[in-house]
Structure formats: structure tokens, C-alpha cells
Amino acid sequence: MEDLTIAGSRDIYFSPSVNLKAATGVCSISGESYLEEPYEFYKKIGMWFTDYIKQGGKSIVLDLKLSYFNTSSSRAILETLRVLKDIHHSGNEVTINWYYPNPDDDEILMEGEDFQEECGIPINMIEYELQDSEN
């Protein structure tokens, strides 16, 4: 089982940085998401999770730290979270951490809450300090 690694980029489209680790099941998706083919992009991630469990992986931790995503991406992200819900419901350990910036920006937090309500799996909401470079 190989890692899935995608370097983040901000050109005509914005790709988040993706790090899915086969050795540990500790994974992260961070940055900005506005993609030409959002469904294909996130489908690949969902398939990696499914394969990881099929090949004997027992637990997945996913850190989501997204500062911007358009609505097409958000629909595709929801699909990925639903893949994780299915994995969780078939008896595997799944932890999802949703990072939102402070101060005075509750919009990313609300996005996390909405995802949680829709995908039907608990998501930990974790605040982080926004650095100037991330604005």
C-alpha cells in the first residue's frame, strides 16, 4: 500500500495538500480547494481510504485544515466523509479533526458543523491560531 501525496498548489486552480500515510493511517488534507475536477480529486482520496482498510488497516485519523473551498469542492468533500462514515460503521476506528481558525472567523467552524450533521460521523472541532501568512 502506497502513501497518497499531493502537493498543494495555488495557480489557476487551487489544490489542497494531501498526505495519506499507509504506515500509520494518519492523514491530512489542508490548504485551499477549488479544482477543475473536484469529484475525481476527492474520489481518489475516498478510494485510498477504502483500499487501506481492505488491506488490513485498522484505524484512520484525518486532519482537515481547509481555509477555502468552493461549493463544488464541498460536495466532493462530503462524499469523502461519507466513505469514512461507512468505514467507521463497519467497525473500524475513524477520527476526524476539523481545524478552524481564530479569532473572529466562525465561518470555517460552521462549515465543519454542517459537514458533521450531514455525514453522520462525529468530527472534533479544533481551534488554531491563524498566522499572518495564512490570511
Binding site: 468552493n70 461549493t71 463544488s72 469542492s73 464541498s74 460536495r75 462530503l78 454542517d114 450533521e117 450531514e118
Partner: peptide, 17 residues
């Protein structure tokens, strides 16, 4: 949430939200 959770209409390429 309701729109995002429902199937996309066939002619939609975006998120419909």
C-alpha cells in the same frame, strides 16, 4: 445541508448550493 445531501440534477456541473 439539504441541497448538498441530495443528488445533483443531471444538468448540474457545480454543487447546486
Amino acid at each position: 445541508r439539504k441541497y448538498r445531501s441530495s443528488e445533483l440534477p443531471a444538468d448540474h456541473k457545480g454543487g447546486n448550493i
